[in-house]
Design a protein around this nucleic acid. Structure first.
Lengths: 348, 348
DNA sequence: ATGAAAGCGCTAACAT
DNA sequence: ATGTTAGCGCTTTCAT
């Protein structure tokens, strides 16, 4: 059996309380006895039982994180951020993967709530109404979803899309296709809004394709539609879909970016490793994870304020267009100053 | 406050013991009272406090997983397998990321041990000797590392490499370069052994390059050495390194697989998404995760056997060469039956 | 079949 | 500055 606080107390010749205090409120004990206690603790390899502590303090020292798919590189990065922030604050982290199932989300939420002080719910698939109905004890921070009255961390997806459209418009593109992600995705909705607004502002035609599953195969399937649409540039719901586009376009012998430009979103690490590399709208994934934990901790710090009808805190992060040295985005084929394309332009 | 077992007892008009029994030993209570208890529990939204239960049963119902880097796609897949298996067995999962730091590994091991029944330690970076010194209460299963007397799950890396070499030899390659991974990696050691043995068996020249960091940049850095080595085929420590090779070779205008063949290892999902797709040695990552949990659970089931000097259980999984439709591997440039290369062969 | 009571390891009043 | 006591929510004897 592992050493308990009693063993340490006996070994140090003091009472349990003294041991407890020596460990968690060091200034309240005599330096000499504290030293004795610490020595005994180390000698016995004592590790406090956090479950027992939580039973009385009401705080578990654990946080929970629920994500749709751990093997999706987007979520891996978020998880990494959450994990780092949790550890820095001396919290342990429960992680659960729902396999994209909305029902598993509520289930896990309920199962976790008793074991943690707070939960980060990442990119929830559960409908707003149902999510509102779930009453959990723990503090819950939503990530990549905004619900009025709920703490949340989001990214300015619409602005990210605006940057993308303005970039393409500046390069002379007049007709842009968007390969849409899942209908139920909040992020996709935000992105569509941003696209439509900035397409209008820049006087660009926007062709809406999909919805497609947010995977490689989604991009493969969308490629032919994108070509047929007459668009000279395609924006994909995310980088993985953009990679699918690149693959299918390559297979059809269509050159990127010479014949058509491809733009991704998320800035997963793979997006920099392809030929050509992807121009993409970078989402600060790790930062979002950190921010989620920070929000959670602030919520836990003053539960009083939370009980009062204080407005739910919300943190919005910035999305940033990334253009790489070699990239899948080029000027409109007819508007290039360099190369022999200008002739072609006047021929029309 | 959340409902406790007392609240349920009061609501159902029975004692705490009866509620407890109704929930965990259903046959020991009268069906009628059980129904009453369950109804009350549901009505109050009762969720048992697992920490309190663990305090008395000595089992936490939690498992721990320690990995070097969550955002590495290899580990994401392993995590996914562990997570699924844990959930299926009604265990919650603590996950910790060490950021590749060996010291963090021991630290986390110590911190986790009190909160979990068992731990999967994935691809440990800690030296054997130090790892042996760490005495943890919980059952620990090693993954991707074999230490005598310790339960572990490994993959037959050497055989995977043998398959790769035999494939290349059959295609006529006579000189193969290996871009080595980290010196301290157990897997890399296994792979090197397999490579050397099968190179000898097939009468192939093996050129050893590196060690290189197991990242994209590692492959980029190794590409020029590989070209200069005179090898007609390169095997990379893993797929990410192989992608780095592809990138740099492409930048130098070297055609893959026409001029040089590239082979990866791990079968991360990205390996199927490139142009050309990677031929790779597939490691059953999810399966390894599942196997780790299975081993852990069997260990927990009969702690008696574990206490007796029963041999530490070990599970070895199979690695499998994957050749895709379009791939980065082709026959030796001089030995191709199709195309105009045969002339070139005789010219020499 | 059910209830009463003890106790898991720990912290937080309340003494001293 | 330290010790004593009660009790967190639960399971498990031991009675009944």
């Amino acid at each position: 059996m592992a050493a308990t606080i009693r063993d340490v107390a006996t070994a140090a010749g003091v009472s349990q309380s003294t041991v407890s205090r020596a460990l968690s409120m060091p200034d309240l004990v005599n330096p000499a006895t504290r030293a004795r206690v610490l020595a005994a603790a180390r000698r016995l390899g004592y590790q406090p039982n956090r479950a027992a502590r939580g039973l009385i303090t009401g705080r578990t020292g654990n946080l929970g994180l629920i994500v749709p798919d751990l093997s999706n590189p987007f979520f891996s990065s978020v998880v990494k951020g959450v994990q780092a922030a949790a550890r820095a604050a001396d919290y342990s982290l429960f992680i659960a993967d729902t396999d994209e199932e909305a029902t598993a989300e509520v289930e896990l939420l309920l199962a976790l709530t008793r074991q943690v002080d707070g939960i980060v719910l990442c990119s929830p698939r559960t409908p707003d109404a149902e999510l509102a109905r779930v009453g959990v004890e723990s503090a819950v921070v939503l990530m990549n979803r905004r619900i009025e009255g709920r703490p949340s961390v989001t990214v300015d997806n619409a602005d990210g899309m605006r940057q993308a459209v303005e970039h393409l418009a500046a390069l002379g593109h007049e007709r842009i296709a968007y390969v849409a992600g899942p209908r139920t995705s909040w992020s996709n909705g935000q992105r569509e809004q941003g696209l439509h607004r900035s397409a209008e502002d820049t006087g660009t035609d926007l062709v809406h394709l999909g919805h497609f599953p947010p995977r490689f195969e989604g991009g493969v399937a969308a490629a032919d539609l994108a070509l047929a649409s007459g668009a000279t540039a395609v924006i994909a719901y995310n980088d993985v879909v953009a990679l699918g586009l690149l693959s299918r376009l390559g297979a059809r012998g269509v050159s990127v970016p010479d014949q058509i430009s491809v733009l991704g979103c998320d800035d997963i690490s793979m997006s920099a490793m392809t030929h050509p590399a992807l121009t993409t709208v970078s989402i600060p994934k790790r930062e979002a994870g950190r921010a989620g934990v920070a929000l959670l901790l602030s919520l836990l710090a003053d539960t009083a304020a939370a009980a009062e009808g204080a407005p739910a805190p919300h943190r919005e992060l910035h999305a940033q267009l990334i253009v790489r040295a070699t990239t899948g985005v080029a000027p409109h084929p007819d508007r290039r100053t360099a190369g022999g394309h200008s002739t072609k332009g006047t021929t029309r």
